[in-house]
Structures are given as C-alpha cells and as structure tokens.
C-alpha cells in the first residue's frame, strides 16, 4: 500500500505570507545558499532550510507543522545575511512555529523553557544556588536582582492560554 501522493498547492505559502514576518516566502528562488551556509545543516543531515521552504511552497502543511525541523533553526541569521533575494528563512520559520503552536505542536524543550520563564520571570531561578550567591558576593555584585514574575505571569494568561 503506497502512501498517497501529495498534490502541490500554494495555499500554505499564501497563509504564511499573510502573517507578519512570513512575506519573505514569496521571494525564495530555491538557490540553496541558505542550506550551504547553515551551521545546523552542516551537522544535522535531515535539516536543510531550502528543503523545508520548498515543502512550504508545495503545500505540505501538516508535515511541516508537526515536524521538529522548523524548531532546529538556531536563529543565527547567517542565511538571512547571505540570501541573494533578501529573504529571511529565520522570519519564515518563526511564522511556521507560531502556526505550529496554534495547531497544538510545540517541542517539549520549548514548552518547558517558556513555562519556566513566564512563571519565574527569568530563566535560571532554579539554578540560582547558594554557591552562586556566594560567588556573586565575593565579586561584590548584587545578589538579588529582584526579578519580576508578576508581569510575565500576566503575559502567560493573555498570550499562552491553552498553549502551555
């Protein structure tokens, strides 16, 4: 039983282009400079920004939104710097991530980190041990920066309801 073949459609690309940051999907000519430049692509075989963008351009919406691949981008923006058409794969993948979240897919690592930062107001509350406090004292640094968690908790309920 062979898998049913996909028929290309431009609707997914149109959807991405309609969200701020996703307009660049219209610029890609599949030249491959992004894949050639990408640090992640050089160490992770399955990750190729050009391939991911072509998947968007032919309308593989489900596959792209349920995959880990768009979350592997490091956001280093080297591809953006090099793209000959002035497109930013980083911005495109940001939009993909937002859509993925809407459809209910977030990698665990991202879910956890986001939850932590919104509840605590900053990332490393749990890691701030006594030893570290002591190190800071020895260096004559402020030991209590009074990180604010109230604001980020409000953001959690406003923007992330039902998401994390």
């Amino acid at each position: 039983m062979s898998k049913e073949l996909h028929s290309p459609t431009s609707s997914f690309a149109m959807e991405i282009a309609s969200i701020p940051g996703g307009e660049d999907i219209r610029k890609c000519i599949q030249c491959g400079i992004c894949s050639a430049t990408c640090s992640v692509a050089s160490v992770v075989d399955k990750y190729r920004p050009r391939k991911l963008i072509q998947k968007i351009l032919i309308g593989e919406r489900n596959e792209v939104l349920k995959d880990d691949l768009p979350w592997l981008c490091m956001m280093c923006r080297t591809c953006e710097d090099r793209c000959q058409e002035g497109a930013s794969p980083v911005d495109i993948f940001h939009v993909v991530r937002q859509l993925a979240v809407k459809e209910g897919y977030i990698p665990d690592a991202f879910k956890q980190a986001t939850k932590t930062v919104l509840l605590d107001g900053w990332m490393l509350e749990d890691a701030y041990s006594d030893f570290i406090e002591e190190d800071r004292e020895n260096l004559n640094l402020d030991t209590n920066l009074e990180w604010n968690e109230e604001f980020t908790r409000r953001l959690m309920s406003k923007y992330f309801k039902g998401v994390i």
Partner: peptide, 8 residues
Amino acid sequence: FADEELIF
C-alpha cells in the same frame, strides 16, 4: 528540493 514524489 523537497525530496518527495508528487502528483498533479
């Protein structure tokens, strides 16, 4: 580039 078999 998408490394996929397609139909249209």
